[in-house]
Simulated assay, not measured.
Amino acid sequence: MARRKKVYEGKAKILYEGPEPGTLIQYFKDEGAPGPSSEESAAAEGKGVLNNRLSEFFMAGLNAIGVPTHFIRRINMREQLVREAEIIPLQVVVRNFAAGDLSNRLGIPEGTPLPRPIVEYYYKDPRLNLPLVSEEHIIAFGWASQQDLDDIIALALRVNDFLSGVMLGVGTRLADFRLEIGRIWDGDFMRLIVADEISADSCRLWDLRRPEGAPASEPGPMADVYSELARRLGVLPSNVTHATKPTLIN
């Protein structure tokens, strides 16, 4: 078997050249990726397998409702075949409830519902610890155009509607999540797609199924979020070991 050429390796995934031009193989590691303002990471045996299944579930669901993603198909327990895309150097964060960094910056108590979903942008440069940036920064430095930003917001809000509904249906609240957006070309036509992954690593999830005696109005973090979310969504593989909690968006 020919040795595959590695294209990129991050904290949570490895990208290899795909079998055909314009494709990549995305391999999910057990290590974690930190949130926009966190230097922590999570590592748990079997986490990559679960995140592969979860990302497949969410990406395939988005494809089915007409939200374009890079996902083509799952290859095996840890790998997906995806479309190659030029990644815009932004982490796009959608917030439904105050938590983490937003609570700290603005003094809003954690758990407060926001008046509407808020979309934030973080510049993807690990040396700078992913700083929060404005649309003015993004346009001025050429990371994306105004039309790109309009399309990114539209994509992010559609993803938010989909994920929020799916999570609520299995007793889970989506407080916030992060996305990466990529550009692909069909001839001379460019369009934006959802890329990277959507998994327990990229979402802040609160459990609405509270233990007996706990106030229903005070949801808390989901215990063992990888396997529990996979179990609730019906995608839990039978041979995956216990995994612990992920690093969430701060």
Score class of each variant (00 low, 15 high):
2 A>R: 14
4 R>L: 03
4 R>Y: 00
6 K>G: 03
6 K>Q: 09
7 V>K: 08
10 G>A: 09
11 K>N: 10
11 K>S: 08
12 A>V: 07
13 K>S: 07
14 I>A: 12
15 L>Y: 04
19 P>R: 14
19 P>E: 15
20 E>G: 01
23 T>M: 04
23 T>Q: 06
23 T>D: 01
26 Q>H: 10
27 Y>A: 09
27 Y>I: 08
28 F>C: 03
32 G>C: 09
32 G>R: 07
33 A>I: 09
35 G>K: 06
36 P>T: 10
39 E>D: 15
40 E>S: 15
41 S>E: 15
45 E>H: 13
47 K>C: 07
48 G>P: 00
51 N>I: 01
53 R>E: 05
58 F>N: 07
61 G>I: 03
65 I>K: 12
66 G>P: 11
67 V>D: 13
72 I>N: 00
73 R>T: 10
75 I>W: 00
79 E>I: 01
79 E>Q: 09
81 L>R: 04
82 V>H: 07
83 R>M: 03
85 A>D: 01
86 E>M: 06
87 I>P: 00
93 V>Q: 07
95 R>T: 05
96 N>Y: 04
102 L>R: 08
104 N>C: 10
110 E>D: 14
111 G>L: 06
113 P>H: 06
115 P>Y: 14
119 V>E: 14
120 E>T: 07
120 E>K: 03
122 Y>H: 05
123 Y>M: 06
124 K>D: 07
127 R>D: 11
128 L>C: 07
128 L>A: 14
129 N>A: 13
129 N>M: 10
129 N>C: 06
130 L>V: 13
131 P>T: 08
133 V>R: 06
133 V>C: 10
133 V>N: 09
135 E>S: 09
135 E>H: 09
135 E>P: 11
137 H>A: 15
138 I>Y: 07
139 I>E: 13
140 A>Q: 15
141 F>A: 13
143 W>H: 13
144 A>P: 05
145 S>F: 06
146 Q>M: 13
147 Q>P: 05
149 L>V: 03
151 D>P: 00
153 I>F: 06
153 I>A: 12
154 A>I: 11
154 A>F: 14
160 N>W: 02
166 V>S: 11
167 M>Q: 02
169 G>W: 04
170 V>K: 10
171 G>A: 04
172 T>K: 04
173 R>E: 11
174 L>R: 10
175 A>V: 14
177 F>K: 07
177 F>V: 03
180 E>V: 02
180 E>M: 03
183 R>N: 05
190 M>K: 08
194 V>H: 02
194 V>N: 00
195 A>N: 03
195 A>E: 03
196 D>K: 01
203 C>L: 13
203 C>H: 08
203 C>Q: 15
204 R>P: 06
207 D>G: 14
208 L>V: 09
210 R>S: 06
210 R>D: 11
212 E>Q: 12
212 E>L: 14
212 E>D: 13
215 P>D: 10
217 S>H: 13
218 E>R: 15
220 G>M: 11
221 P>D: 12
222 M>Q: 09
222 M>N: 08
227 S>V: 13
228 E>P: 01
228 E>C: 07
229 L>E: 04
229 L>C: 05
229 L>G: 03
230 A>K: 10
230 A>H: 09
234 G>P: 02
235 V>I: 02
236 L>R: 07
237 P>F: 00
238 S>L: 11
240 V>A: 02
244 T>E: 15
246 P>M: 04
247 T>I: 11
248 L>G: 15
